[in-house]
Nucleic acid binder design. Structure first.
Lengths: 191, 191, 191, 191
DNA sequence: GATGAATGAGCATTCATTCAT
DNA sequence: AATGAATGAATGCTCATTCAT
């Protein structure tokens, strides 16, 4: 049966279907036929909206970032939060996104690649925003170490890895961040 | 034309050819036919030495780690090195291996998966050995932070990532490690 | 050049092509590529209609039986035929099917397996229907031997074998059946 | 390690190994490598003795017959046995061979072909010898039916089938043979 | 006689992509 | 916009066979 939909809606449905499958089975192991079936349409239509699998993959991965982009921006620009408050908020959001996107499945040995791609997107986004914040922190003297941008990068990526390996205690993470960035104990309130 | 070779040699050639291709194009995108062609033999012979692609992949990846395993052990047990000396040596070796195995190519967007797999192997090996050392460091009071094992993990993985993104200055790395583990400035001599 | 056909038709064409080849070369020696070529389509399309070779084989073999299933049922239930009439009709149909499906080719030494499979299908179907009839014959006293079901089984299979080895005279078959089932001479009229 | 053996012995060993595997897994599913491994030699040596798989298959199948050929000949020519005695002896031998060669495995759906080939060999041999006997029986008036050779053929084949389907009672078989050949009740003593 | 490394053709199956309707 | 039949290239894998030693 032929169901016409608003192009925007259709495209979004396909993107969602693809994202779901990529996360569950990995990108390479997800075929265009799989995507079509998941979206309950035909392969032909997938190709009507995306001219190749590569394009579909690219657009689907973009999503992982864009979702939180807006929220992040708001946090950083929020004048009601001080440095530690902002950092806490960003990390909170970061954890939320991680826990949503880096589930056990994504990590399976049979599924390398997606984890990495997703993580890379996630981290890039997180870094862009914390980066600004850290700069601020350095200027205002809250952060007092050399190469803070690198350390931050390491932290952001490492935290994602730790999380995906099962470490879930927020206090542990707060503790780690405070120590590595040489922040006062208990300055971060992640949960 | 038929060229017979010593099985050891042949097997190594195949392993080398495979590693080369895995690094260049990624594991999934490297077919057994590709490997055969690269090794200048027939597919059949590849299967004569490795009974499946999975086995070939496993053995090829093993290489990235095993090479340094022995050396690492020696460092840790070396009574002529103090704590900082040992940590320096291990990190030196770690960098060497990274710089040999995690080149720019490995990171190519078209090549997720290998980087991650190799990195995971590498880090696991590094962690096993530094882990023991850090424990030692904690006991003897050189290291004085909470969750040192997680921080070390984050460091080890993050350093590989930083390197693969182009950061190559040894002083930067030494600096980062000293700060995050709260070690005295200039206690590590990586180069 | 791209020729689209009604799926029903296409599927039947593939089934026909496959049956032809199975009969000529045997199942194991017929590749999916052979089938595609015989049907003048691509391998991919064969898989579009049958999800594996096994499924194709199964469906192709089904054909040998199902064709006559309906007719057989009608014969057995036909009130206008007496016991000998029915048996004669069933055997007639059986011969027809045999002569259509168990040609000389099927028996070729290079082709074991198909003959047996087809024969097994054929015999099973014939047995199901003659079985009921024979039971009837036993009850009404037309058949008066011990182990009639085994003898019938032997007969049904044996007849197929004899036929496939070149014996074609209907009188011979009628004679054999009459004697082994201990029926009155000339009670069966096969042709 | 290199073990030289008498060529005759070696060839026989290979033949035995092959027969074992053909019976267990079917001909098509037995590779030359399997045969070599089962015979504990290398593939090359199999090819030294048999120039192709086809030749190996042919010779292996011949075996199923030859084994009993000699015994059969002796029975038929034994002047101490009367007609029924000889027929009984032959059938006894036939059952023995069947029970040895047509086991459950041979019948497996995944293994059509071997069963048929073996059965065909077996039956041919049985027929050759019972044929002579039946001719004798006809001449001396013990057998009094038309087409006895065809009926015998059907019987011989059918009995093998019944056996392989699980019917094992010797009395049943004796009964069937007596009835179909119109021999006096209890004239055959198979066991 | 015997070994086992090497070949090459073939096989079932998958999948991204195209295109007539 | 949407369908789904059709394509064709690739993929992992098997195996009979050869041949230098």
């Amino acid at each position: 049966m032929r169901i016409s939909k608003d192009p925007e809606v259709r495209k979004q449905e396909i993107l969602d279907a693809a994202s779901r499958l990529f996360e569950k089975q990995g990108i390479e192991k997800t075929s265009m036929a799989d995507v079509a079936k998941e979206a309950d349409i035909t392969k032909g239509l997938v190709y009507y909206y995306f001219k190749s699998k590569e394009e579909l993959v690219d657009e689907a991965l973009k999503h992982f970032i864009l979702e939180s982009e807006l929220v992040l921006k708001n946090i950083v620009q929020n004048r009601n939060l001080d440095f530690f408050g902002k950092l806490s908020e960003i990390l909170k959001l970061y954890f939320l996104t991680i826990s949503k996107n880096l589930g056990i499945n994504t990590l399976a040995k049979s599924n390398p690649g997606v984890y990495e791609l997703v993580k890379r997107s996630l981290c890039k986004s997180a870094l862009d925003h914390t980066g600004v914040l850290v700069e601020e922190g350095v200027k205002s003297g809250f952060i007092n170490i050399s190469h803070p941008e690198y350390i931050l990068k390491i932290l952001i990526g490492g935290i994602a890895d730790l999380y995906s390996e099962g470490v879930r205690d927020p206090d542990v993470f707060a503790d780690i961040i405070e120590q590595t960035l040489h922040l006062p104990k208990d300055s971060l309130r992640i949960w």
